[in-house]
Computed example of a mutant assay.
Amino acid sequence: MDIATILGVVGSFVLVVLAIGPSGLGAFINVPSLIIVVGGTMGATMINYPLKEILGIVGVAMKTVFAKEASAKDTIAKFMDFAQKARREGILSLEGDIKELEDEFMKKGIQLAIDGLEPNAIREIMETEINYTMNRHKLGADLFTTIGTFAPALGMVGTLIGLVQMLQSMEDPSSIGPAMAVALLTTFYGAILANIICMPVAGKLKMRSSQEMEVRELVVEGVLSLSSGENPRIVEQKLACFLPPKQRELAED
């Protein structure tokens, strides 16, 4: 679980509520404004994306909290074990070990090496899967970026609606307040939806995708090393290039 995401969202809303303070939350709740921003934003997003992608939005958002972060260091350690065993007993001896792997991408790559495919063929298959995975991840991040773009725009639409209503009822002072509330709160809701939820979620999804792709590139190199029967020490040095300098030093110690 990613505690930073939870703390960020909760902390941001708490600070906003504290800033509202003496006014009370009641003054910042306006149903017409919510309908304009939330309803309008989702409607515009549905025009932009297929319904299937919209329905999966909650699952995509949950990846920012519950997705298991891939560890390059742990992955290298596994490849070191595999390389040493393959060196002693041959690559076919890994067939039983890969059944226990949780990483389906690594399992598939090592199975291709066990099956005797040429390194170029293995690289092509695995990099094709990496590219399609990146496209899927990009779609999820782009979905939240789109919502974050539409929300402030719909907030401005609500502001214009509120101002028009206010100007039409200048003769009735009692109606100016509700119209002004719609005008201001729609902008407020749009800014909150975009800058506390959607844009940060999109950024976290992009970061997680980048980290996962780095580990997958590491897996490709590890599988190719196993397929070529390289010395475990060479495998270690090659894969250590994927680690930051400080982590390389710790790994060597």
Results as ranks from 00 to 15, higher is better:
Ala179Asn: 08
Ser175Tyr: 06
Gly222Arg: 01
Gly148Met: 05
Val215Asn: 07
Leu224Gly: 10
Met199Cys: 08
Thr186Ile: 10
Glu171Cys: 03
Ser210Thr: 14
Gly140His: 13
Glu230Thr: 09
Leu226Asn: 01
Ser228Arg: 15
Leu160Arg: 00
Thr186His: 03
Ile234Asp: 06
Glu221Tyr: 07
Met213Asn: 15
Glu171Lys: 12
Ser174Tyr: 04
Phe188Cys: 08
Met199Gln: 14
Cys198Gly: 04
Ile196Leu: 14
Ile176Pro: 01
Asp142Lys: 13
Cys198Ala: 15
Ala191Tyr: 06
Cys198Pro: 10
Ile147Asn: 00
Val220Asn: 04
Ser209Asp: 13
Cys198Val: 10
Gln168Val: 02
Leu218Ser: 09
Ser227Tyr: 04
Val220Met: 10
Gly190Ile: 11
Ser210Asp: 15
Ile196Asn: 11
Gly203Glu: 07
Leu185Arg: 06
Phe144Met: 07
Ser225Phe: 05
Glu236Met: 10
Leu154Ser: 00
Ile147Trp: 03
Ser210Phe: 06
Leu185Met: 13
Ile197Ser: 09
Gly177Ala: 12
Ala153Gln: 00
Ile161Asp: 01
Thr146Cys: 13
Ser228Asp: 13
Pro152Asn: 01
Gly222Met: 02
Leu160Ala: 14
Leu226Lys: 02
Val235Ser: 01
Ala191Met: 11
Glu214Asn: 15
Leu239Trp: 05
Lys238Ile: 12
Asn231Gly: 08
Glu236Val: 11
Val235Gly: 02
Ser169Thr: 13
Ile176Trp: 04
Arg216Gly: 06
Ala202Gly: 14
Gly222Tyr: 03
Gly190Thr: 09
Leu139Met: 13
Met207Gly: 12
Met199Gly: 11
Leu193Thr: 08
Ile147His: 02
Glu221Lys: 15
Thr159Lys: 00
Asn231Phe: 09
Val219Gln: 11
Leu160Trp: 03
Gly162Asp: 04
Ser174Leu: 12
Leu139Gly: 13
Met199Asn: 15
Thr145Ile: 08
Gly203Tyr: 03
Ala181Gln: 08
Met156Lys: 00
Lys238Asn: 10
Ala194Glu: 01
Glu171Tyr: 03
Gln237Trp: 03
Ile234Lys: 12
Pro173His: 11
Val182His: 02
Thr187Leu: 06
Ala179Leu: 03
Val164His: 08
Asp172Gln: 10
Ala191Arg: 01
Val219Asn: 06
Ile176Gly: 08
Glu214Leu: 15
Thr145Tyr: 11
Leu139Thr: 14
Leu205Met: 12
Ile147Val: 14
Met199Trp: 12
Ser209Tyr: 05
Val164Ile: 14
Pro173Ile: 12
Leu205Val: 05
Thr145Gly: 15
Val182Cys: 07
Met170Glu: 05
Lys204Asn: 13
Ala183Ser: 13
Met180Val: 06
Val220Tyr: 07
Pro173Thr: 10
Ala151Asn: 05
Ala194Trp: 00
Met213Lys: 15
Leu193Arg: 02
Pro173Ala: 15
Ala151Thr: 07
Arg216Ser: 14
Asp142Val: 08
Thr187Trp: 06
Asn195Asp: 13
Asp172Phe: 05
Gly229Lys: 06
Glu221Pro: 05
Lys238Phe: 08
Pro200Glu: 03
Asp172Trp: 02
Gly155Thr: 04
Val157Leu: 10
Ala153Arg: 00
Ser169Gln: 12
Met170Arg: 07
Thr187Ala: 12
Ala194Met: 04
